[in-house]
Nucleic acid binder design. Structure first.
Length: 194
DNA sequence: TGCAAACCATAAC
DNA sequence: GTTATGGTTTGCA
């Protein structure tokens, strides 16, 4: 059985689907209907599911984590993501994306360099990311520090990023399973959009 | 700046 | 198999 929840935070609706301690899909939108539709679109067609109003313990931790992410905090997720059905390449991309620290962004090309493949392939993997915003695909932008795209809308992407400002001033690199991934302060992006 | 061509993994046919 | 399709990038005028 799959549990589905929707919750309003600020001006955004978050929705998640959980089964057996694993997050199947997480998503969000400016209205509840779209958020729930996003969930349903990504579940196997014939899977039995049920809506709940009162979250279980596992759901509560997940929703709490979502709120932390929305607030720009450093959220720790202790629920695992159901990535086993994804193509291996997508998993690598998501994994690299997940290791971008709060307050930093990186580019599609930079991820491509770290995990192999090309920038467009990375963008493709992002586009079908089932775990927004737990996997912070909003922290991936174009190489010229333009916003790029976002399934949830560019406004929302900008919103997330501006909530994650940390005042970092210079680029750095992080390790993602052996390879170096270069990241930039979010301020680099934000100052182009004020 | 702006455009065209190369880029590379998926999905659809 | 082959083709179409991106949340790109790079090079060149």
């Amino acid at each position: 059985m799959i549990e589905i929840y929707a919750q309003n935070m600020g001006c955004i609706y978050f929705a998640i689907a959980i089964s057996q301690q694993k997050i199947l899909v997480s998503t969000f939108s400016i209205d509840q209907k779209t958020a729930l539709n996003n969930i349903l679109d990504n579940l196997p067609f014939s899977t039995p599911f049920q809506f709940f109003h009162k979250p279980s313990a596992q759901a509560r931790t997940a929703l709490l984590a979502l709120k932390d992410i929305y607030d720009g905090k450093d959220a720790t997720i202790n629920l695992s993501l159901a990535t086993s059905d994804l193509p291996a390449y997508n998993r690598k991309v998501l994994n690299a994306t997940a290791s971008i620290p709060v307050g930093y962004v990186t580019s599609y090309g930079a991820i491509a360099k770290a995990v192999g493949g090309g920038a467009r392939a990375v963008g493709k993997a992002m586009a079908c990311n089932l775990f927004a915003p737990i996997v912070p695909c909003h922290r991936v932008v174009k190489s010229n520090l333009g916003l790029g795209g976002y399934a949830g809308g560019l406004q929302v992407k900008l919103e997330f990023l501006s909530r994650e400002k940390r005042g970092f001033e210079s680029p750095r690199t992080v390790e993602v399973n052996g390879a170096a991934l270069e990241v930039f302060p979010v301020e680099y992006v934000l100052k182009k959009y004020v």
